[in-house]
Amino acid sequence: MRNIIAIADKELRSYFASPIAYIIIGFFALPFGVFFYLYLEAFLRQSMQMAQFGGNLNVNQQVIRLVLQNASVIILFVMPMITMRTYAEEKRSGTIELLLTSPVTDFQIIVGKFLGALGLYIAMLLVTLLYVAILFVYGHPEWRPLVAAYLGLLLMGGAFLSVGLFISSTTNNQIVAGMVSFVVFLLLWIVGWFADSAGATVGPITSYLSITEHFEDFSKGVIDTKHVLYYVSLITFGLFLTAKSVDSERWRG
């Protein structure tokens, strides 16, 4: 455990020691803010109209849910930037030799790197809470669905990170790792689009595979174990593949 923390800590520090962390957080927070503004604006206009008829609108459903669903797509774009260097950079600069000749196991290195990346991702999500806080100042959103949605974001991001970590471990070129991760993430997103046209048997499979599809329920404030299980197994699978990749690299030299 001590080793895992040491490596996670080092990973997290190295993100913040270079401009990467700030660029990633900025790159994420900016479009998030734009979405937030647009949906809030639309919400205000609608609720003005509704007020005339004495109706009421739900902030959680009309703002938070939509913003976070859009955020899940931005996350997809940002994640390759977090994971692309994790292994590729260590392999290119030779520092991997330090890690692999230190008394730490592959498992500790992989989990440490994963947690380090997750730490940066959590920092990204914390920034978005500032926007949400505005809603609490001027309105009365429900906090429980919010917690569910953020748990969903965390799990979904974890799944992206673990797959990205694996891709990074297969190459010593950051750009290759970044591009391949991006394409794979994109496929994991759009595979769900085929669900409607794919027919009765293939349809549910493609929609099940889609990484963003599983976030749908979380964004509505529903924590379904089915989706939790999907994300947790994807995270485990990604880390397992990383372990295999690191090990096979060692044998090939």
Binding site: R2, A6, D9, S14, A17, G94, I96, S102, P103
Partner: peptide, 21 residues
């Protein structure tokens, strides 16, 4: 090639190595 992390200071680096060793 000495396995150094360019973004770390020498002391930070040695501290990290000490932890994983």
């Amino acid at each position: 090639t000495p396995p150094l992390y360019p973004d770390m200071t020498v002391r930070e680096y040695l501290d990290f190595v000490a932890r994983i060793k």
